[in-house]
Design a protein around this nucleic acid. Sequence first.
RNA 1: UCCUCCUUAGCUCAGUUGGUUAGAGCAUCUGACUGUUAAUCAGAGGGUCCAAAGUUCGAGUCUUUGAGGGGGAGCCA
Length: 480
Amino acid sequence: MQHKKVIELLQSEPSIYEINVKGWVRSYRSNRFIAINDGSTIKNLQCVVDFERFDESLLKRITIGAAISVTGVLIESLGQGQAVEVQVNTIEILGDADTEEVKLTILSPKRHTLEILREQAHLRVRTNTFSAVMRVRSKLSFAIHEYFQNNGFFYVNTPIITGSDAEGAGEMFKVTALDLEKVPKNEDGSINFKEDFFGKETNLTVSGQLEAETFAMALGQVYTFGPTFRAENSNTSRHLAEFWMIEPEVAFNDLAANMDLAEDFIKYVIQYALDNCKDDLEFLQERLAQEDKTKPEAERSGMLLQDKLSFVLENHFKRVSYTEAIDILKECKPNKKKQFKYPIEAWGTDLQSEHERFLVEKHFKCPVILFDYPAKIKAFYMRLNEDKKTVRAMDILFPGIGEIVGGSQREERYDVLKQKIVEMGIDEKELWWYLETRKFGTAVHSGFGLGFERLVLFVTGMSNIRDVIPYPRTPLNAEF
RNA sequence: UCCUCCUUAGCUCAGUUGGUUAGAGCAUCUGACUGUUAAUCAGAGGGUCCAAAGUUCGAGUCUUUGAGGGGGAGCCA
C-alpha cells in the first residue's frame, strides 16, 4: 500500500485501491469528518469515518493537532466542497494532542492575531497563513537560484565571519572566542585582539558585496544568497537583525545594465510565484482582502494581491534620477501644503520614507528606480559621475515596502577609489585586497543587494517582516 | 534610539464621576447529532485585572516608575 501526500490525493482520480496518508488533524466535525493536513498543500484532505465501526476510545483521540495515519479508499466525495475524500478503513494515532493543553496554544481552532502567533513561532507554521508564507518563501528561494543559474551566473558563498569593517552598511555583531570574564588588554587599555581566535577583530557579515566583487572579476557573473547580520537597534516592520540577502555582481555591466538586470530578475521570481504558488497565493489574497476590510477607507490597498503582482510584471519600473525626484517633490502638493514632516528644500539631502512613499504610491503609482544620488549620502565604492557631485547608485522602491533593492555601478578607477577611501576616513590597509582588484585588470562592474524577506513580504502581502521568516531575530528577541 | 498607543479568562475585547459577587464572543469540557465545510444546538468550568510603589475608608479604574507588545520615525535590504 502506498503512502501518499495530501497534494497527490487531491489531484488523483477515485480508485478502488487502498492508500495510506499521514498528517495532522485540522478539524473533526460531526463525529464523522476528519480534515487532515500534511503541509504538502494548504488544502486539507477530508477523511470520512463510520463511527459505529470504530472504538469510541480511539475516536476520542482524534483531536485537533494530533498526528494520525489513515488507510482507506479514495472515493468521489458525497458532499460539496471537495472532489474526493477518503473512506476510512483504519486509523492509527501517531501522536496525541491533549485538548486541554492545545487550547492554551495557537493550535486551538479560532482566529489568532499575528502577534500571538509570533510568540509561538514553533507552532505557527501549522497555521494556514504561515504554511502558505513558508511554501511561497521556499519557491521564491528556488526561483532566485533558477534565474541566476539559467543566466550564466555562479553562486558564491562569501564569508559569514568577516575581518573587514569597511563596508559601513551598519552596526556589526562582534565574533569572539575570548573569555568575556577576563578580556586580554593592551597597555593602553584597549582589547588585545591578537589573542583572539583569528588574531584580529572579527564580525558577522553585513554584506558579501566586496568579496563578491573580487569573484565577479574572475567568474564574470556571480551572486550570493546568504544570511546577513545588522546590529542596528531597528524596531520596524521592515528590519531584521538576521536576514537573507541576494547580491549579484556583474563584470562589464554599467548602471543601466544593472537596472535592467534587477528589473528582469524581480519580474522573473514574481512570475514564478504566480505560476507555482497558486493555492497559497489565493489563500493569502483572501486573507489580505479580509484584513483590508478592517482598515479605515484611506489605508486600504483596494487591489487584490495577485493583481498587485501582475501589475508589477506588466509595467516598466519608472527610472528617475535623484535630481528629477527632488524637482517633482519640491513642486508636489504635499510639499507646498507643508504636509511633509520633512519639507523638501535643497538638493543634497537624503529622501525620507514619506517622500519615497509619495513618489511610489501617489505620483508614479508603480515601482520606481531612483538613480544618480548625491555622492555625500552614499557609500565609498560607488562610481563617481562626471559632475563630481553624484554617484551611479540606484535604489528600487516598492509600494508598501520601501527600498527593496540598493545597488550601484562600482568605482573601478584605482585613484578615485583610493581618494574616496581616504576622504571617508576608512583604513585603506583593511581594504588592500579590494583595492588590488582595481590594479590588476580593473573593469566597469555593477551589482545590487536585494532583501529576500522584503521580497517575500511583497509577494505574500504580509505587512510585518517578522512574519515571513521562520524565527525572526530582532532587538530583544532571539527566542527559539 | 525617539514619538505614540496598548497590556482585564487560553484568545479578541467591554468594564459608568473610584464602590459591594469583574462581563461578552470565540476556544475548552459534558450531552445531543450518520453528509459536515470556522458544523450546529443545550449546559458547565475558567481571573495574580502586566509588575512594583503610592493616593484613598475603598483601586481593574487615579499618580509615579519599570517590563513587554503594536504602529510610526531614524538607520537600511
